[in-house]
């Protein structure tokens, strides 16, 4: 959703602090303490803004992401002043959301596989990984399928595969996820709510 930036972070006034500083008669060689900020505040003015909800504690605070559409990276995340719950405020975790993005080099970016007995990861493709997982799901399901229980009642279930997760997913991901697991016959379906 591209909404006019005016609605969220209304950044107006003179172009950068530089002008204000120079009006004080200061030699405007790159003022390092502000160089970053000058760049930042100017970048903010042309950034695309989008809203999001904090992924942490369930109070449901609103945040605004500012994205540099050329570099395709998020350059700033701060509170959404229009959100009725937090009105722009954020705790340490929400204020730090920037470090969950691709700006954090520790983000997982590759599909990894660990073979039995191995002490390291191998990089794989999505096609390979999902294909192999599908094969294993089928093999384990078919090899351990329970058609009837001890009482002779039809149960058509699989107890040899379990699933947990996730309170971190969107509602629209969760619904198909449980449908898929149930269609596969799983009954061990759990997640964070249980602990």
């Amino acid at each position: 959703m591209t909404v006019s930036r005016r609605e969220f972070l209304v950044i107006s006034g003179v172009a950068g602090a530089g002008l204000a500083l120079s009006s004080l008669g200061i030699d405007m060689g790159p003022v390092k303490a502000y160089a970053q900020e000058l760049k930042k505040i100017d970048k903010m003015k042309s950034a695309k803004q989008s809203t999001t909800i904090c992924p942490y504690c369930a109070v449901g605070c609103g945040l605004i992401c500012s994205t540099d559409t050329k570099a395709k990276t998020i350059i700033n995340i701060e509170g959404d002043p229009d959100h009725p719950i937090n009105e722009g405020a954020l705790c340490a975790k929400g204020a730090s959301l920037f470090q969950t993005t691709s700006n954090n080099s520790d983000r997982l970016k590759k599909v990894l596989y660990r073979a039995p007995g191995s002490d390291k990861w191998q990089e794989k493709s999505w096609e390979w990984a999902l294909g192999e997982i599908a094969k294993r799901v089928k093999a384990t399901r078919d090899g351990n399928f329970i058609e009837k229980n001890a009482k002779g009642e039809t149960v058509n279930r699989v107890e040899a595969i379990a699933h947990i997760g996730s309170a971190a997913l969107d509602n629209e991901e969760l619904w198909p996820l449980q449908a898929m697991m149930r269609a596969l016959g799983l009954v061990y379906i759990e997640h964070q709510a249980r602990i």
Binding site: T52, A58, G60, K110, V111, L112, A129
Partner: peptide
């Protein structure tokens, strides 16, 4: 055998979440 699949963070996809 372990498959580690990298997924999107909250700001990298669209959808709804329900608060308290």
């Amino acid at each position: 055998e372990v498959f580690m699949l990298p997924c999107a963070a909250s700001v990298e996809k669209e959808g709804s979440i329900s608060n308290s």
